[in-house]
């Protein structure tokens, strides 16, 4: 029971991080109908920028920790968003209207480029960071096994819920959100009624990248271990989460992320940690086979 509870907490934390990355996939897929293949790399870049910012701020006292995290969050979101903007500008915009495969290849190219760029400039070695936010609650103790809930885990879940709420509001309530939905449905028509499609798409990438940066910061703070390769697997899992939840739906992305996180945590906890990635991929396959529109996605009728 205690072990179960602990895995549940760990799974939710992990799932929140996947969910944040998944929002980026879901938004971009919604608007241009393509997988942003370099999104995992954007998350990795966010993690590195967060690490750099935290190191630049230097050691802080307990009282300033919140301030330091907020600052790191702001810097990481802004600079990572610049990368998201650049990605769209370089790898996607010139290929709008080209065969879909061309954009996919250019995105894979960008992903390889970014990964090696970070490896080259930052080194291939794993970066470790001393925990900035230590401590937490002990929920229960039984036979020497403690179930703990750390402050960091609380922070991650709270931040995820807050951001999901904000972004859902942005999409449902603001002009930008309306423009995004218009482009999703018919970009030619959207352009005709005066929506700047280029800017809307660019902003979608920027928003996705900013959220990936949040995930990057959380991972840096929570696990304290990052390297240039973390984007690949996290990217696939987050995409799985987006598909699982129903691509195009932001609550779906979070739900999918939580489920993937939980499955991974329980699988590692009870079966085998080596095959945890296999579990995630198998779920992707099963979901696509039996419910391709995901849990919260709208069913699509094939037009003939």
């Amino acid at each position: 029971m205690e072990y179960f509870l602990q895995q549940l907490i760990n799974g939710i934390t992990l799932g929140a991080i996947y969910g944040l990355i998944a929002i980026g996939y879901t938004m971009v897929y919604g608007i241009i109908g393509m997988i942003n293949f370099a999104h995992g790399e954007i998350y990795m870049i966010g993690a590195f920028i967060a690490l750099g910012t935290i190191l630049a701020i230097g050691p802080v006292g307990a009282g300033a920790v919140v301030l330091a995290i907020l600052l790191a969050l702001l810097v990481a979101m802004m600079l990572t968003a610049t990368y998201g903007w650049m990605l769209e500008r370089v790898a996607y915009r010139p290929l709008r209207g080209a065969p879909r495969l061309a954009a996919l290849i250019s995105a894979i190219g960008m992903s390889i480029l970014l990964q090696n760029y970070v490896q080259l400039t930052q080194g291939a070695r794993v970066k470790t960071l001393q925990p900035l936010v230590a401590g937490g609650f002990t929920l229960m103790e039984h036979d020497g096994f403690e179930v703990s809930l750390s402050y960091m885990q609380i922070l991650i879940v709270v931040a995820t819920i807050a951001l999901m709420t904000i972004f859902t509001l942005v999409i449902t309530r603001t002009a930008l959100g309306r423009a995004q939905r218009a482009c999703e449905q018919d970009s030619t028509m959207a352009a005709l009624v005066g929506i700047n499609v280029d800017r809307t798409i660019a902003l979608t990438f920027v928003m996705g990248a900013a959220l990936a940066a949040v995930a990057g910061l959380m991972v840096t703070l929570y696990y304290g271990v990052i390297d240039f390769f973390i984007g690949f697997v996290a990217g696939i899992k987050a995409f799985t989460a987006a598909v699982f939840g129903g691509i195009g739906s932001i609550p779906g992305a979070i739900l999918g992320g939580l489920l993937i996180g939980l499955i991974e945590a329980f699988w590692s906890g009870y079966f085998s940690i080596e095959y945890k990635d296999v579990a995630a991929f198998s779920i992707l396959v099963l979901v696509l086979l039996f419910r391709p529109t995901g849990l919260l996605g709208r069913p699509e009728v094939e037009k003939v």
């Binding site: 370089v90 190219g109 390889i112 480029l113 990964q115 080259l120």
Partner: peptide
């Protein structure tokens, strides 16, 4: 090498 490889993929596609 790999940086150039990635860049070449993007450039040729564009």
């Amino acid at each position: 090498r790999m940086i150039a490889f990635g860049a070449a993929m993007v450039a040729v596609m564009i």
